[in-house]
Design a protein around this nucleic acid. Structure first.
Length: 113
DNA sequence: CCTATGACTGGTC
DNA sequence: TGACCAGCCATAG
């Protein structure tokens, strides 16, 4: 596995249970400007690799389209199992669930719900 | 080496 | 709010 992928995966592994992060956010934390590579790196993984890939969503809070449509449901189910709520349009409420611990010292607590 | 491809993003309209 | 567009750049073939 090449260094860039490992870097991306290590960052994704820092996303805590019940929170999500966007591709661009992950890119900023490791390889600025490479949001697409984050998606590409995840594309090269499999669901059993131990990486919390399901906690990564796009900038709209939605689950991005991918080759096998069924995977989108798998991701949504995994997130819901962690307490993440989707709105009627199938998007995560980023203001509540987005992880911001990459850049901030203080870990924001999940308010209300 | 060159081209196509992508689980993306931010700005514009 | 949503659709469209143009950058983005490492991989794979």
């Amino acid at each position: 596995m090449n260094p860039m992928y490992r870097n991306i995966y290590s960052i994704i592994e820092r996303i805590p249970f019940g929170r999500v992060a966007t591709y661009g956010q992950i890119a900023l934390a490791g390889i600025p400007g490479h949001a697409r590579q984050v998606g590409y790196a995840l594309y090269r993984t499999d669901s059993g690799c131990g990486i919390p890939w399901h906690r990564v969503v796009n900038a709209h809070g939605a689950i991005s389209r991918r080759s096998f449509a069924g995977d989108e449901m798998v991701q949504r189910k995994r997130l819901e199992a962690e307490g993440v709520v989707f709105d009627h349009r199938g998007r995560v409420c980023l203001s509540r669930f987005q992880w911001r611990g990459f850049s901030e010292q203080t870990e924001p607590h999940r308010d209300l719900v």
